[in-house]
């Protein structure tokens, strides 16, 4: 999975600007369904880009997701590359 798969709906953007967030937050900011989001996050976790911490809030399960150092660095590289592409385009 690459970071620019449908950039509008990747959970990487909202995770990059916060410390950690739960699934509801990420669904709200990506427009993904729970199932799609879980698939996205599973692949990102496999790649070592995100860490998912399972916890209980008021006796209900709640998973907090955060970017790992590797994920943050990968996103920064992606961002720089994307900016480079646009800077190279003629006006």
């Amino acid at each position: 999975m690459s970071l620019n798969d449908d950039p509008g709906s990747t959970p990487m953007h909202p995770l990059y600007v916060v410390d950690s967030a739960d699934y509801t937050f990420l669904m709200h900011h990506t427009g993904l369904t729970w199932g799609n989001l879980a698939t996205h996050l599973g692949k990102l976790e496999e790649a070592g880009y995100v860490a998912i911490e399972k916890q209980f809030v008021d006796r209900k399960p709640n998973s907090m997701v955060r970017l790992t150092a590797v994920g943050r660095a990968a996103f920064q590289t992606y961002k720089t590359q994307l900016q480079g592409v646009f800077n190279d385009l003629p006006d």
Binding site: A21, T24, F25, L26
Partner: peptide, 12 residues
């Protein structure tokens, strides 16, 4: 608010 927007911890 929380059930609708979710839980989030902001950066430093």
């Amino acid at each position: 608010t929380e059930p609708r927007l979710g839980r989030v911890k902001f950066g430093p």
